[in-house]
């Protein structure tokens, strides 16, 4: 049984949005995908002024290079609020520059995945991610009383 929660895809490249959604479909991952096209939009979903409208996704797929607020800053903000600190964040990005990998893990990323160029390999990677984070992994309950 898949965790039925939503997936927040933070990605500014429309092609990549399409490929990612397509890869989920190929893998029969039917969780609703919410797309944030830049870092600011992602933060509006996760940490809105009106907390009742906050999105609590089962998985966040986060690109590093994003307009407005970059991915690492989004990650830092997610980890610095008790309401979002426990959410699984997989940094899913183009680069495998060491500094991005190091910074991501320093800021508390759960995983770092480089998007393969070949679509077939991307589908395989998405499958592993979906199975692990939505099926195998036990999500953290909300961290109460700390925010």
């Amino acid at each position: 049984m898949m965790n039925g929660g939503k997936i927040l895809l933070v990605e500014d490249n429309p092609d990549d949005v399409m490929f990612t959604i397509r890869a989920f479909q190929r893998n029969k991952i039917s969780n609703e995908v919410v797309v944030a096209h830049d870092g600011a939009e992602a933060l509006e979903y996760l940490l809105p002024d009106d907390e009742s409208k906050a999105l609590r996704p089962a998985l966040i797929l986060l690109d590093v290079n994003l307009p407005k607020v970059d991915g690492l800053e989004v990650l830092r903000r997610i980890r610095s609020h008790a309401r979002t600190a426990g959410l699984p964040v997989v940094v899913l990005t183009t680069s495998s520059e060491e500094r991005d990998i190091v910074a991501s893990y320093r800021l508390g990323a759960n995983s770092f995945v480089r998007k393969p160029v070949i679509f077939g390999e991307f589908v395989d990677a998405t499958k592993v991610l979906g199975v692990y984070w939505l099926l195998v992994n036990e999500p953290a309950p909300p961290w109460r009383g700390e925010d």
Partner: peptide, 9 residues
């Protein structure tokens, strides 16, 4: 590493 790989994908 960021910008040149994206179009290839």
């Amino acid at each position: 590493s960021h910008d040149l790989r994206a179009p290839l994908r």
